[in-house]
Simulated assay, not measured.
Amino acid sequence: MKRKNEREGGFSRRTARPGSGRKGRKSDEKASEKEANTPSEKREYKGRGKNEKPTYGAYQERDPSKKSFRKPFSPLSKNRKNKDKSLSQPEYDLKSIQRSSPKDEDEIRLNKFIANSGICSRREADKLIEGGEINVNGKMVTELGYKVSRKDRVVYKGRAIRPEKPVYLLLNKPKDFITTTDDPLERKTVMHLVDGACEERLFPVGRLDRNTTGLLLFTNDGELSARLTHPAYEVKKIYQVTLDKPLAKNDLEAILAGVTLEDGLTMVDDLQVLSLDKTILGLEIHSGKNRIVRRIFAHFGYEVTALDRVMFAGLSKKDIARGKYRFLNEKEVINLKFMNKRKNKKRPQ
Rank of each mutant, 00 (worst) to 15 (best):
E124V: 06
I292P: 02
P64C: 01
E234F: 02
D104M: 00
E41L: 07
D269G: 02
F218V: 04
T260Q: 05
K34N: 10
K173N: 03
N135E: 10
Q98T: 15
T219Q: 00
R122T: 01
R201C: 07
N211A: 07
D182Q: 11
T266A: 07
A197E: 05
D126W: 00
I255V: 01
I255D: 01
L274N: 03
L315D: 02
L315T: 02
H192T: 04
L217D: 14
K289H: 02
K318Y: 05
D183G: 03
S77D: 11
F177N: 13
E124I: 10
Y156F: 10
S225F: 08
K139S: 07
S225G: 09
G57K: 08
T181W: 02
F113P: 00
R22D: 13
N340Q: 15
S316M: 04
Y233E: 10
L144G: 01
H286W: 00
F113N: 06
R153S: 11
T229I: 09
S225L: 08
K278A: 06
K165V: 13
I334G: 06
S96T: 10
G21I: 02
A248R: 12
K147Q: 05
L276C: 12
R22G: 13
T212N: 00
P102G: 00
N135T: 15
A321W: 02
K249I: 15
P348M: 05
K175S: 10
Q349D: 13
E332W: 04
M311Y: 10
M311W: 09
Q349P: 08
D251R: 08
Q98V: 14
A16N: 05
L252S: 09
A226P: 06
S117C: 03
E143N: 05
